[in-house]
Amino acid sequence: MSHEVAGLPEGILGHHFSSLARQNEAMRLGMWLFLATEILLFGGLFCGYAVYRFQFQLAFAECSRHLNLTAGTVNTLLLITSSLTVALAIHFARTNRQRAAVICLVLTILFALGFLGIKAIEYTEHFHERALPGKYYAFEAVKVPGSAMFYSLYFLMTGLHGLHVVIGMSVLAWILWRTVQGRYSSKYYTGLELGGLYWHLVDLIWIFLYPLLYLI
């Protein structure tokens, strides 16, 4: 149930929209509403973090110093750079340079894989040191009340964020396929733009997680 617009692939403009501009605006607004719920979802975890960091300041500082700061910093740089490549992919699609857009999206997915790889190495270290959440905590290096709580929050926050990285990567892979098919151009690129928005949100969350977890 859609009508055609000159120069656009079939099926892009829904019949219930009077023009593509209105549809694009509705799509954008819908995406931002979804991002708002994501911010509130992570907001709950940040709130829990604030409470327990206030209660167990020493434990949080001690545990934070046992995290792999280099890994955290490299991951921050990877996510920031992947945000750049997504922004550039949208820019190139908008200016009808599909090949450049495809290269940027491939780079983004590679950066995301790099991020997950480094996170996996960190998690392996925690499991070997038994720096685990709640009652499974048996980390020899830090024995301060509240350190189990730090690792509970650490695994919850980085775990939920990691899940978002995986989802974002899958969305970007799908968008990459559609870019290869040539569906995005200066006439229509909203699908690509919305996938990019999701990826930037993943980056935004990490921008806060990095100093709060690694740099106490």
Partner: peptide
């Protein structure tokens, strides 16, 4: 407050 907290600096 929970056991062991607040711990302060």
């Amino acid at each position: 407050t929970p056991a062991g907290a607040p711990f302060g600096t």
